[in-house]
Write a protein that binds this DNA or RNA. Structure first.
Lengths: 174, 174
DNA sequence: TCAAAATAGTTGACGCGACAAGTAAATCTG
DNA sequence: CAGATTTACTTGTCGCGTCAACTATTTTGA
């Protein structure tokens, strides 16, 4: 049981992983801040809404898609609502619940900011990785997320916001 | 030039990578908060000091080793000093500079909190990855950091805090 | 059927980190 | 060798996120 410490390979890998986890969010934030006036988290919120049917999601579902606590999401959606990018309304089916819907202004914001963001992601990540490395990274992050998010909250199945009664499961891009 | 969007493989990988970058810091923070009363960043600060000769580093060198801005580090070291874990004193060689030194209490804090932290890292990362995946991850994070930190700030060479005049380059664990 | 528990979300307070501005010492330059 | 620039921080402010507490519904279960 020399399970007390890390091997030097593990340590070297760990130092780098921590550095990425520390620096990547900042890099995403600063590009989006500068070009779109959004934090990366705010971008994720409006982007997830933009892909949902009726551009609407329940807070809990939106929290799952953005890896956030309900509290954090509530604060952020409140601010986005103040800025007119999102609107909130009570869910008719469950009066405890709240739906968040992207406004037209919010949709425009997504449309105009997505290309720059994607370019930034490509620049920082996919341009420097080989296709094999991308596949490896998928496997690695998969394994880590299994531990980090054991209940699979962030891969929660789609929850219809205000069911139009029929329809099949919509596509989930991501 | 279909360089506008990501392939579906890239997108799936990206979503997971972002989730890891979002959730990992929280997992590290909460274990250390609970068991040692330290944030992960505070832990890194005292851990880096504990490995330095004389348990002392200049602020700039410490910032490089912890992937932080000088401003952030200055605030955190100030708080750690208030708590008696670290002390600051002017660098004799360069009167612009400040040295941070780990106190005995700070050293004790590192000694008592390191095993739990390492166990947590093993639990969340190395227990779920094969040795091949660890090697792959090292390559991947290396490539990404090249872009993220082009000037290699965080891999800055060791800077002696208060040179005892002779001596060879000390070991750098990490 | 009705109380207890779980679910869904909001709110307020507080602490940390980013940004901008400021200080002071060292270094470069004409 | 004096002014200008760079380096090395520090400090104040402001915004965001976490935590704990709270409200309001829905569900469970004796």
């Amino acid at each position: 049981m020399s399970e007390q410490w890390l091997t030097s390979e593990q340590l070297a890998t760990w130092v780098r992983l921590v550095a990425v986890a520390e620096l990547l969010p900042g890099a995403l934030d600063s590009q989006l801040r500068r070009d779109a006036g959004l934090t990366h988290f705010e971008y994720m919120v409006v982007a997830m809404l933009s892909e949902a049917p009726e551009r609407t999601l329940r807070m809990t579902a939106l929290a799952a898609r953005t890896n956030a606590t309900l509290s954090r999401l509530s604060h952020v959606v409140g601010r986005l609502a103040d800025r007119g990018l999102v609107e909130r309304f009570p869910c008719p089916q469950d009066r405890r619940a709240t739906n968040a819907r992207l406004t037209e202004a919010g949709w425009q914001k997504v449309v105009e900011s997505a290309p720059g963001h994607v370019a930034n992601v490509r620049h920082h990540v996919f341009e420097v990785l080989s296709p094999e490395q991308v596949a490896q990274l998928a496997g690695i992050t998969d394994a880590i997320l299994d531990r980090l998010d054991p209940d699979g909250v962030m891969t929660a199945p789609y929850q219809r916001p205000t069911p139009p009664d029929d329809a099949t499961e919509p596509a989930r891009p991501g």
